[in-house]
Design a protein around this nucleic acid. Structure first.
Lengths: 220, 220
DNA sequence: TAGATTGTTAATCGATTAACAATC
DNA sequence: TAGATTGTTAATCGATTAACAATC
């Protein structure tokens, strides 16, 4: 039994790992061989001490006086995240957003393989999303169980999102990424991640209106 | 000079407000009149004490023994965020993702008005993204300054993202929402929000592989 | 050796939560 | 009045950061 750190790892750490990975991949592509936590800090806008601390949760990856070897750190982080092998996933919803997801090259590059797209709209079934033929939603259980898919992406309108979530859960999907603008709920054991792209815009508005207020006060 | 709380408000609070707003709008639409922090906590998966505490940063909105009046709380939160009036914004990038954004009805509903779409690809210029005609990127400075736009959305490929950011900053854009898979950097005074939709998927993978490990250990 | 940078400790900081008096 | 739920305090918890010895 070889589990390095059963110690609970703070969620914040896990959320930052993909950010580290992103800049590491870019650095590697540019031909760099090592990187310091200071440089990583500039690129990710994360405190260097925190980066070092985050990484030591998983082992000692750096060389004092030198920094981190980019190639091996990429491998380590990918291994920790589980993105060192390809993950197959399915998508429900072949509207504009679903089609954009299906057509996105970046999925493959980052270790995801979209294996099927579903929709309930008969006018969409049989058509294409990216290179993939859209199937009727009724085929969902068969395809998912036959292929043992565990990751599902939701790109349907608000009203259908929970229903699709329940379908996914019932068929063994374990990670759900929901792009619809409503929250979906899944039982314990299933990770439902809600990423409403407009919600992010909403919260940045606060800073816009606040800086207006400050400007108004200054102008008084 | 009437600024209620110059007290610094934690970023976490601001990030949760859109979540509250989302469920409040849904509750309102369902015809509910009041809601307790306990119920809000169930719907948002956020601790009720925290919800109450978050709200008191901005005033006292509830009635003891009763809860919060949904209609007025919606108005309050919208006012705090600045989503009580429409914000005009521009989009650069008329690819699959850009088109999906332009075609998305939810923007209008949540107080955003997309007023222009730009691309540098001549085969896209003149075409349509949603209801909007795609303009050449060279028109960006004129349109943005004439209309006083302060919000910009980026949906271009990785390599062009920083260049577009710089263009936005140079023309007075103050809030940038970047959907491309690379981080972009903006000077102080400009909020650049990076929301790589695949990055979110990456971090949830960790929990998938961790639960596999646990399963493997149990099976030993 | 001198300079650089990690890994790690210890201090700080801030957010989360439980608990309860206030009050509808 | 009795029950419910807020607003708020105080305690806890955990994350962030500065600082520095270890060491390349």
């Amino acid at each position: 039994m070889n589990v390095n750190h059963i110690d609970h790892i703070p969620e914040g750490v896990i959320e930052r790992l993909p950010a580290y990975l992103g800049v590491l991949l870019q650095l590697r592509q540019e031909g760099n061989s090592t990187v310091s936590s200071a440089r990583l800090g500039e690129l990710t806008r994360i405190n260097p001490a925190q980066i070092r601390r985050d990484l030591t949760h998983f082992g000692q990856f750096g060389k004092r006086g030198v920094g981190y070897d980019i190639v091996s750190l990429v491998e380590r982080v990918q291994h920790i995240l589980g993105s060192d092998h390809t993950h197959r996933m399915v998508l429900v919803g072949a509207g504009h957003l679903g089609t954009a997801i299906a057509a996105y090259d970046g999925l493959k590059e980052r270790g995801f393989a979209l294996v099927a797209v579903f929709d309930k709209d008969p006018t969409k079934v049989g058509g294409k999303a990216g290179d993939i033929i859209v199937r009727d939603i009724s085929e969902f259980p068969r395809v998912v169980s036959e292929q043992g898919i565990r990751i599902g992406v939701i790109a349907v309108p608000q009203d259908a999102a929970q229903e699709v979530t329940d379908l996914m859960v019932a068929n063994g999907i374990r990670v759900i990424l929901n792009y619809s603008p409503t929250m979906v709920y899944a039982p314990a054991g299933v990770v439902a991640h809600n990423t409403d792209p407009v919600r992010e815009l909403l919260h940045t508005l606060y800073y816009l209106s606040k800086s207006d207020e400050i400007a108004a006060v200054v102008a008084e």
